[in-house]
Every structure is written in structure tokens, then in C-alpha cells.
């Protein structure tokens, strides 16, 4: 029954000034699902992602997360963000904190764990992303791929029920993309619910339960990867996929 959807985005619209960047976007996810948003740059996919944790404000529509209205003006956004992890294209690691410091800040200051509990949790998450030998490294001492894995560990340390990935590999050198995708693969296998914006089509095909193709703020088409990639119904989808795969 669709009323039980874990995340249900209904007719979400957003304007920046006069420009409509999201136009009645709708999709839904079950718990444990992986949904990948694809589309040309400027299509609104990152904005859509940010509306889910209210880093961007949608003006119309509804986003139900676990039955709660995310767009409600009464919602405590900080509480929402505790439960929704986010990974950024530019990593955005706290530049003054070590890897452990980055992953421990949320548990310590937001969840109120003790110093040692927070550290323990941070270390566990860094181990999970394969960085057990970089606990005390500062962001500037890490490669891009390592930094992004710290970014993932930082989000995981909050034990989120939904993870948002905003083009997590777009800022990485090609040879560093693999290690980040591998970590994300691991999360998929563990059953993490993930909403991902990415241009990595082979990754999307492998792990996505559903692909949502956005263009100009509209959902042009959505469906399971086999259908959308191999038999796109819309001409625009086909053209986009052709463009992007010819890049690979």
C-alpha cells in the first residue's frame, strides 16, 4: 500500500525568484530503497535532494518522511536533519577537525553523546568506510576519495534513516571515484535507504530500485533501471542517456 511509503514526494514545486526550478515533482521510496535522480545539470535534481532535508525550501507540495510532513512550518529542521544524512559534491568536511573529529561532531554536539562515546562511534564509521588508518588526519592531508569517505562516515555517524548523496563523485579524479562507489555499494547491501544524485550511470543501473529522470524541473520519466536505461519511453530521456553515456 502506497500510504506506507517511507519517503513520498508529491507535487513539489520551487521557485528561485521568477524561475521555477522544480515543477510538481513526485516520486516515492520504500524503506531500504535506492532511488537515483538523474538529469542534465540545472535540471533541479540537487535542489530536489536539498528540499528533503530542508537545506532548500520547497514552496509547494508535500514531502512525507516516515509519515511526517517535512515541509510543515512547525517542523524542527534540526531534528529532521539528525535523521537524514547528507553527502556533498564538494565534501564540505570541517577543515579544522580530523577525520574522527568530523564524524564525532554530530554525535557529540547534536546527539549529546559523551566525548568517548562520540569518538568510538566516529571510529566505527570510519572503519566502515575503510579509513581505520586515517583517524587523526586532517581533511587537507587526505585524498579526495578519502575525504568523501570521511564525508560519508560523518553522515553515517548520526545513524540516519535516510541518506542523501549529492553528486558524491563529481568532484573526484576518475581514479578516486571507485573507492567512493564501493563504499556506497556496501551501504546498499546493508539495506540503507538512499536517495542519490549522480552521473555514474553504471552505478545507478547496478544499485537503483528506481531511476527518476528530471529535466527543467519536471519528472520526465521514472522506472526501474532496466526499463529506463534500455527502453526509455520519452525522447528526452533517450537523448540525455545518449549524451551522457557517450562521455564514458
Amino acid at each position: 500500500m502506497s500510504d506506507d511509503d517511507f519517503l513520498r514526494v508529491t507535487d513539489v514545486s520551487k521557485w528561485y525568484g521568477d524561475e521555477k526550478v522544480l515543477d510538481e515533482v513526485s516520486f516515492e521510496m520504500d524503506r531500504g530503497d535506492v532511488t537515483v535522480l538523474i538529469g542534465p545539470s540545472g535540471s533541479g535534481k540537487s535542489t530536489m535532494l536539498r528540499c528533503v532535508n530542508r537545506l532548500a525550501e520547497a514552496q509547494e507540495g508535500s514531502i512525507l518522511l516516515d509519515g511526517e510532513e517535512v515541509l510543515s512550518p512547525d517542523l524542527d529542521v534540526d531534528e529532521l536533519r539528525r535523521e537524514v544524512g547528507m553527502v556533498f559534491q564538494g565534501f564540505n568536511l570541517f577543515a579544522h577537525l580530523t577525520a574522527v573529529g568530523n564524524a564525532a561532531l554530530g554525535p557529540r554536539r547534536v546527539l549529546g553523546l559523551s566525548e568517548s562515546e562520540a569518538r568510538e562511534r566516529a571510529e566505527a564509521q570510519l572503519e566502515r568506510v575503510g579509513l581505520s588508518d586515517q583517524f587523526d588526519s586532517y581533511p587537507a592531508e587526505l585524498s579526495g576519495g578519502q575525504q568523501q569517505r570521511v564525508g560519508i562516515a560523518r553522515a553515517l555517524a548520526m545513524e540516519p534513516k535516510l541518506m542523501l548523496f549529492d553528486e558524491p563523485t563529481s568532484a573526484l579524479d576518475p581514479e578516486l571515484i571507485g573507492e567512493v562507489l564501493e563504499v556506497m555499494h556496501g551501504l546498499v547491501e546493508e539495506g540503507m535507504t538512499m536517495l542519490v544524485v549522480t552521473h555514474e550511470m553504471s552505478f545507478a543501473r547496478e544499485v537503483a530500485d528506481e531511476i527518476v529522470f528530471l529535466d527543467d524541473g519536471h519528472v520526465i520519466e521514472r522506472g526501474p533501471p532496466e526499463q529506463l536505461f534500455d527502453h526509455p519511453e520519452e525522447e528526452r530521456t533517450g537523448r540525455f542517456l545518449e549524451r551522457i553515456t557517450s562521455h564514458d
Binding site: L55, G85, F88, N92, A95, V110, R154
Partner: peptide, 29 residues
């Protein structure tokens, strides 16, 4: 950097907490 604040807000720190725990330690340096 603006992204530092975004990241702080994204893990659930309030604006003031983000300023205290993220912006000031960097800015004062």
C-alpha cells in the same frame, strides 16, 4: 567557506551551534 555552514546545518547543528563549533574555530585562526 559557505559549505562549512551547510555541512554543519546538515548534521543537525543549529545556526548558532554551527557558528560556535565550525565557523569560529576556523575564522579565529
Amino acid at each position: 567557506e559557505e559549505g562549512q555552514i551547510t555541512a554543519g546545518r546538515a548534521i543537525g547543528l543549529s545556526k548558532l551551534e554551527t557558528i560556535y563549533h565550525v565557523v569560529l574555530p576556523q575564522g579565529l585562526r
